[in-house]
Design a protein around this nucleic acid. Structure first.
Length: 953
RNA sequence: GCAGGUGUGGCGGAAUUGGCAGACGCACAGGUCUCAAAAACCUGCGGAUAACAUCCAUGUGGGUUCGAUUCCCACCACCUGCACCA
């Protein structure tokens, strides 16, 4: 039986032997495994922490046995709001609370038996640590990447604190879930946008989980396009817009600006309805983020009377609108609106009756029977397509062409010289159907290019097709004797069945555009129409050509844009790193000299932040008032502190050399450990910590103080552990599992084994108390192997094969983080062992070694009891013998018509012919074949045999 | 709305260059041991039917293939991320 008392016995051995302590050793290859260090909250450790750390504890233990010099550190990310809020509530100093929490976490972590190097623990709130956080900030300031700016920032009224964009995703505060508001404030910002390209391109150099990579790419959100300068008619002012679709410049029918756009204030005297606009600005400002998103479908806006805008390419003058669907914070706060090819512009234009002009048309080139043919004449044609609506019913006229053409189409025909599409469509309708009386007819925005072979004329046609909607007034018909009527018959089809009764893509597109009013936004398939010099170009060519044109004419420029914004790097709170900058009346913002670091937090009586979002530090006059390091005059300290993400942006570097007093880490340590080889953590940090720390690290590389561009070579992510009810664990739902309870009841290895067995590592998995018992049962079975083991050397073929297979499988699965199947394989092997009367030690020792990373206490104990030499952590990772895995006879399944019916034994190297013969000679074959003829026999060596029989006898 | 992921027994989950669906575990049922229980051990366990034979079965509907959980098309449900990003 696995008695949990052995846990502390082995934890003591590991601690006293220092076996997990890492030192630089140039004779060995290094391996740096990193897990996201915890925030030491009062709630203590969560089972999620265990899953996160186990992933790399297994890898680290395996690597040590493989002979690597492994650095596997742990520390505490201890600045932050929960501790401070607790301090506000209880009056206990955050320092004391932090120390208590760290002590609790340390005890808990040790009780699970992680192989961390406890001599390298870091604490971000230790002045010896944050000295270097401040030092890095000064470097950023020195290089112009830290700046103070008065802008609109995200503000959480509940936390009384401003937040970075990354901390207010979805318009909610990361910490307390309150609705955030926009507040104008002067705060410290870090210019992370300067690093957007480096952060994106750096992803090519590392091996990140695809989901992690994708989320980072989306968050940075690089887009390529152009800035185009529109002239405000009758002024010298320009209105610059950013667009990713410069190709659609001919489709601009209005311009739109954000409510906060400064142009409004500037021209308030010229604007005829300025009052109305001010009213709209007020309303827009009041809307919460939530409302803006929820009411997205219902566009609002006000036209600006008195200002018009000149399209610099077409020379057309278009109206200017103010609307809150344009954001001041993205691009230039102004857009050129192209309703035909943008969903939002389309909705807006429809609501306010603004023109929609199609400039991109799909290009259909059929691959079926209508495919262009060689050796027939090529013809070019403008074609009118008549979509004719029945006078009384919701039905449309469809032509069924004769079988040899196979088309189902609308009425269509060539547009003659001097004819408009509408005229041509009506003429064709009368000629082909005899209907004469039109109630309403108009062309609409669904022009398409269509290149195909026209069988009835035996020519290739390159057509531009113009759709025309015709509504009949009545069913009055005149006789027709037009020659083309012999090709087809017509019938009426209801609107909902139209798509399945038209079999040309181009015409289906038209019907779709007519019936479901929508913009055409497929940018991968399109050619330009109604677009002057761009006409006929594919979208991508048109984009380049448009940019070339505007640059040549100095009316715009190529441009990249990012979704990511600069990092608001200030919190109006006490429990954070003080910003080492003073504001001097004469010299402005002045950095503290390096020798004065760390700038430590002063003692305060009251941790409550001010009503208007100022830090508690602002109340400590003795601390705030200081002298300028530059001129010696009066100066005030910055009272905002750094955000929680500061300390965690470089902690992996401190682990390399945690005691260093001269630098954040010494050169020798940096050159040896270089960067993290494998980093595991949660998905929730991908667009926060992981972005920030890559930014800082890249900056440190750029100033020459770290040896690699990227901090983490490989990044993986564990899935959440859900409560037993399948919901996310939370106190309010009462479904939280405390790891301490599991360790106390079942032992550390049970917890470890269960969590690794729970399911695919990167996916969420629900907790199951029964599953825990299953893990315990398995470990008990391991311990009881002692009763089967004998000293004799007995060779058992089956065990030879199974052991080698298991070593292979487990070795490989650990590397792929497939811990669940690795454990399943070991369980299977144990099941085989239990079938034996007695087993030699050599069949148990490697099992203990490969199980050791998951269940180190149990395996160490049994290793000792069975009298193996030394400790298991000093032993060498077992290798497998591939020749032992192969057997001479292999079993192959035989299928009859695709369903497995029986199995055959064949020699390993039998060829297809021999296998076929063995399969057909098998006694069961006749039973299933029943004299049916064999059509075909498929033999896949070492996989399967499939015999295909005639269905008849 | 866009992007990504997931969907397989009563449950957690295996199986992917297309080749035995349900490994391993849990739960459940029967048995051995026991005065009894627990533990342990053995056996069974997707569904239908008397059946060792047959049929059905990997979210739904089609398709490709000798053969599809795996590939293709359309759709549904749930989860995650982003979100009026121009």
């Amino acid at each position: 039986m696995y008695d949990k008392k052995i846990d502390s016995k082995w934890q003591k051995v590991w601690e006293e032997s220092g076996c997990f302590h890492a030192e630089i050793d140039k004779t060995k290859e290094k391996f740096y495994a990193l897990v996201e260090f915890p925030y030491p909250s009062g709630a203590g450790m969560h089972v999620g922490h265990i899953r996160a750390y186990m992933g790399l504890d297994v890898i680290s233990r395996k690597r040590r046995m493989e002979g690597y010099n492994v650095l596997f550190p742990i520390g505490f990310d201890a600045f932050g709001l929960p501790t401070e809020n607790y301090a506000i509530k209880t009056g206990i100093h955050p320092r004391i609370v932090t120390d208590q929490n760290i002590a609790t976490f340390t005890k808990q972590l040790k009780s699970v038996g992680f192989s961390f190097d406890w001599d390298r623990v870091v604490d971000t709130t230790d002045p010896n640590y944050y000295k270097w956080t401040q030092w890095i900030f000064l470097k950023l300031f020195e290089k112009g990447l830290a700046y103070k700016s008065k802008t609109y920032v995200n503000y959480c009224p509940n936390c009384r604190c401003i937040l970075a964009n990354e901390e207010s995703q979805g318009g909610k505060c990361d910490r307390c879930d309150s609705e955030i508001v926009q507040k104008e404030k002067e705060v410290w910002m870090l210019k992370i946008t300067d690093y957007a390209d480096k952060l994106l391109d750096g992803l090519d150099e590392v091996n990140f989980h695809p989901r992690v990579r994708l989320e980072q790419e989306n968050w940075i959100g690089r887009s390529y396009g152009a800035e185009i300068d529109f002239v405000i008619d009758g002024t010298d002012d320009i209105l610059t817009v950013y667009t990713t679709r410069p190709d659609t410049i001919f489709g601009v029918t209005y311009m739109a600006i954000a409510p906060e756009h400064p142009i409004l204030e500037k021209y308030k005297d010229r604007i005829e309805n300025y009052d109305e606009i001010v009213e709209y600005q007020k309303k827009a400002k009041k809307k919460s983020e939530f409302e803006r998103v929820e009411l997205a479908k219902d566009k609002t806006g006000v036209e600006v009377y008195g200002l018009k805008v000149l399209n610099p390419v077409t020379g057309k003058i278009v109206p200017l609108w103010v609307t809150d669907y344009v954001m001041m914070g993205y691009g230039t706060g102004a857009i050129m609106a192209v309703p035909a090819h943008d969903t939002r512009d389309f909705e807006f234009a429809k609501k306010f009756g603004i023109d929609v002009v199609q400039v991109v048309s799909p290009h259909f080139v059929p691959e079926d029977k209508d495919k262009l043919r060689e050796n027939v004449q090529d013809t070019k044609r403008n074609v009118a397509i008549a979509i004719i609506k029945h006078p009384t019913e919701n039905k449309y006229l469809v032509l069924d062409w004769k079988a040899e053409y196979g088309w189902k189409t609308f009425v269509m025909g060539g547009i003659k010289e001097g004819e408009t599409p509408v005229e041509a469509a009506i003429r064709e309708m009368i000629e082909e159907t005899g209907y004469t009386n039109v109630k309403n007819a108009y062309a609409f925005n669904a022009i398409s290019y269509n290149d195909f072979y026209a069988a009835h004329k035996n020519v290739n046609r390159y057509t531009t097709q113009y759709p025309v909607y015709i509504e009949l007034a009545d069913e009055n018909q005149i006789p027709t004797n037009y020659e083309e009527t012999k090709f087809h018959n017509y019938r009426w089809v209801s609107a909902e069945n139209l798509a399945s009764n038209i079999n040309l893509d181009a015409q289906n597109f038209m019907a779709d555009m007519l019936l479901n009013e929508r913009p055409y936004i497929d940018i991968d398939n399109g050619k330009m129409v109604n677009s002057g010099f761009l006409n006929g170009l594919e979208v991508n060519q048109a984009k380049e050509e448009a940019i070339r044109y505007i640059e040549e004419h100095h009316i715009g420029r190529k441009r990249k844009n990012y979704h990511m914004k600069d990092w608001a790097f200030a919190r109006q709170r006490y429990w954070g790193e003080p910003v080492p900058i003073v504001k001097c009346e004469k010299c402005g913002l002045v950095a503290l000299p390096e020798e004065e670091l760390p700038l430590t937090l002063p003692e305060v009586d009251n941790f409550v932040p001010g009503e208007n979002g100022e830090s508690p530090l602002a109340n400590i006059d003795s601390w705030v008032n200081t002298t300028c390091p530059h001129c010696g005059g009066k100066a005030k300290r910055e009272t905002d502190t750094m955000p929680q993400w500061a300390g965690s942006s470089w902690y992996f570097l401190r682990y390399m050399d945690p005691q260093n007093k001269e630098a954040f880490a010494g050169k020798e340590a940096l050159d040896y450990w270089k960067c993290v080889d494998w980093y595991n953590g949660g998905m929730e940090h991908v667009t926060r910590h992981l972005i920030y720390s890559r930014f800082w690290h890249r900056f440190l590389y750029d100033i020459g103080v770290v040896p690699t561009k990227e901090p983490y070579m490989k990044r993986t992510a564990q899935g959440l552990i859900l409560g037993p009810n399948g919901e996310k664990m939370s106190k309010s739902k009462g479904n939280v599992v405390n790891p301490d309870d599991i360790v106390k009841a079942y032992g550390a290895d049970t917890l470890r084994t269960y969590i690794m067995f729970i399911g695919e590592y990167s996916l969420p998995a629900p907790w199951s108390e029964n599953g825990v018992k299953g893990a315990k049962k398995f470990l008990d079975r391991i311990m009881r192997l002692e009763n089967l083991v004998v000293d004799e050397d007995i060779i058992i073929e089956e065990l030879e094969r199974e052991l080698n297979k298991t070593i292979k499988k487990v070795t490989e699965d650990y590397e792929d983080m497939k811990y669940n199947t690795a454990i399943a394989a070991m369980m299977s092997y144990v099941n085989v062992l239990y079938k034996q009367e007695k087993i030699s030690k050599k069949y148990v020792a490697p099992l203990l070694q490969i199980l050791n990373p998951v269940a180190p206490h149990v395996t160490e104990e049994l290793w000792e009891r069975l009298g193996f030499e030394g400790h298991i952590f000093e032993s060498k990772w077992p290798t497998y013998d591939p020749t032992k895995i192969i057997t001479e006879q292999i079993e192959l399944p035989v299928q009859i018509n695709g369903a497995v019916k029986y199995k055959i034994e064949v020699p390993l190297n039998a060829d297809e012919k021999e296998i076929e013969q063995i399969a057909l000679e098998h006694e069961k074959f006749e039973q299933f074949a029943q004299n049916r003829a064999i059509k075909k026999v498929i033999v896949i060596k070492s996989k399967i045999v499939n015999i295909v029989l005639d269905s008849k006898k």
